[in-house]
Design a binder for these strands. Structure first.
Length: 460
RNA sequence: GCGACUAUAGUUCAAUGGUAGAACACUGGUUUGUGGUACCAGCUACGAGGGUUCGAUUCCCUCUAGUCGCCCCA
């Protein structure tokens, strides 16, 4: 028989000589848009562990959840993140709505949170206003490992307080998240880039320094010299890094206020025994940062510094820039995709939700209907039940129960359905007994308790 | 945006200028009411489009996608 089938198929294929016709019949196979991906059930345990960690820390540190739209006005990011930054200049997904609004998919979270803060009058809330979010961000960049066009971030923002102790607390909180996730060897890179009092002076110094060495700079940095000289410091081009090595450092040219702020930060970090690396090249790519900036790097990459897990800093003028009151703030964002990657690298355990210990097998139409009812009763009593109502064959159902490692199988066949009973089968011993419908919940609960005790005994 | 490499079942991999095999997974079965093992069967693939050729999954080109580096960052 199968041979015949095969030959007919082949003949059919040969008959369909015109390839275009074959293709016409076949529906288009869709796939994800470039740089966007599905996160499949088998990957979810990692994500779930991250989500749980974030919820716990948010709760412990009194941060409240905020969700903002994926679509925002383009100008929001142009004004805050900065129109000369790579993120805004070349990586935004931007489009016009039917109504003619210039919008974009959010490339990062902080400006949206601050926008919301202003829009909803959170200035009147007790300070600091502590908010956290998780969500997808979008950047039109070339995808590679740990870099996607749609990626997921969580972030914590503390708005309305300028004390450096909040910066420290935010770092402490971030490290707690890594700790809870079981991640080791993460280094804290730290710098201060000053405020509007001291930055202009420093910028002048920097410009004159680089102007004298203009020939040694790469093309991009020649542009940066005019637009954003600070960014030359974190250029990875070899000829630039050599020049940068001798360049004046931000922390040597801070005003008194910034210096005190930074000192307080370092002292408080020492107090909670958090090691850090002072990194004069760390400036971060976004325009709104002031004073404190920091990043978290997986340790192996400390010298190469290719991809950071997360980072943040202080943004004391952001609210003002977006039309609100002068309100200081400090925030931190972390890439969840990269956390998952790092968890896999470090062989961290994922989070596996509890599995049902009871399997409900059924035979025949009447039993199917009755099983639905039994299932609901068990579910309402908080008992997790697995089933496969689509199957009619006991053999496969038991096989599946076994695969799922269910300790108890409830069998309801034609006979039992008529008698309003089920067979309760203990999968370990293989013994079974008949019980009536109204005793199912009680009996199953009893058995589960016993099973739990046995498990504990075995572990001891 | 630039450069390098790759593209075969759901997954991991083969073979081949004459249209493709395996393993695992999945579905069903081994007298339609009893699991773990075993056995049998089924399902499903040459990324898309051009060119060279009698004939291309195989050689060449373009595109698309993926991976990696640069850049950027999360």
């Amino acid at each position: 028989m199968p041979r015949k089938k095969a030959t007919t198929k082949k003949n059919l294929k040969k008959a369909e000589k015109k390839p275009t016709e074959v293709k016409k019949r076949r529906a288009k196979q869709f796939q994800t848009v470039r740089g966007m991906r599905d996160i499949l059930p088998q990957d979810q345990p990692y994500w779930q562990r991250i989500r749980r960690a974030i919820d716990k820390i948010a709760n412990d540190y009194n941060y409240q959840r905020i969700d903002t739209p994926v679509v925002e006005f383009r100008e929001l990011f142009e004004r805050s993140t900065g129109s000369s930054t790579d993120i805004v200049e070349k990586e935004m997904f931007k489009f016009k709505t039917r109504g003619g609004d210039d919008v974009c998919l959010r490339p990062e979270g902080t400006p949206a949170v601050v926008r919301s803060y202003i829009q909803h009058g959170m200035q009147s809330y007790p300070k600091p206003v502590k908010l956290f979010y998780t969500g997808s961000m979008y950047r039109y960049d070339r995808p590679q490992e740990g870099r996607y066009r749609e990626f997921f971030q969580f972030g914590f923002e503390a708005i309305g307080e300028q004390d450096a102790i909040l910066d420290t607390q935010l770092i402490q909180l971030s490290l707690r998240v890594f700790k809870i996730l079981g991640l080791k060897n993460i280094s804290l890179q730290l710098n201060s880039i000053g405020c509007k009092e001291c930055r202009p002076n420093y910028n002048k110094l920097l410009v004159s320094y680089f102007n004298n060495r203009k020939k040694s700079l790469c093309m991009d940095c020649k542009k940066r010299l005019k637009k954003n000289p600070l960014r030359i410091l974190d250029c990875k081009e070899e000829k630039c890094t050599q020049v940068v090595h001798q360049a004046p450092q931000t922390i040597d040219h801070l005003c008194d206020e910034c210096k005190d702020h930074f000192t307080m930060l370092l002292e408080s970090l020492d107090e909670i025994e958090v090691p850090y690396t002072l990194n004069p090249k760390l400036v971060r790519g976004l325009d709104y940062y002031t004073k404190t900036v920091f990043e978290f790097w997986p340790k192996e990459e400390e010298d190469g510094a290719q991809s950071s897990l997360g980072g943040g800093g202080r943004y004391d003028y952001l609210s003002k820039i977006l039309g609100g009151n002068q309100t200081p703030g400090v925030g931190f964002a972390c890439g969840m995709d990269r956390l998952v990657l790092e968890m896999e690298r470090q062989n961290v355990k994922a989070y596996y939700p509890p599995m049902p210990k009871v399997y409900l097998a059924q035979l025949g139409d009447l039993a199917k209907k009755k099983s639905l009812k039994i299932f609901e009763e068990l579910e309402r009593s908080g008992i997790m039940v697995a089933e496969s109502f689509g199957r009619g064959n006991l053999c496969t159902q038991l096989r599946q129960a076994n695969q799922l490692d269910a300790g108890i199988v409830l069998i309801c066949g034609q006979r039992e359905a008529l008698d309003e009973t089920v067979i309760l089968k203990d999968m370990e011993s293989g013994s079974q007994e008949v019980i009536t419908f109204n005793k199912v919940v009680v009996e199953v609960k009893k058995r589960l308790k016993k099973m739990n005790k046995n498990v504990i005994r075995k572990m001891k």
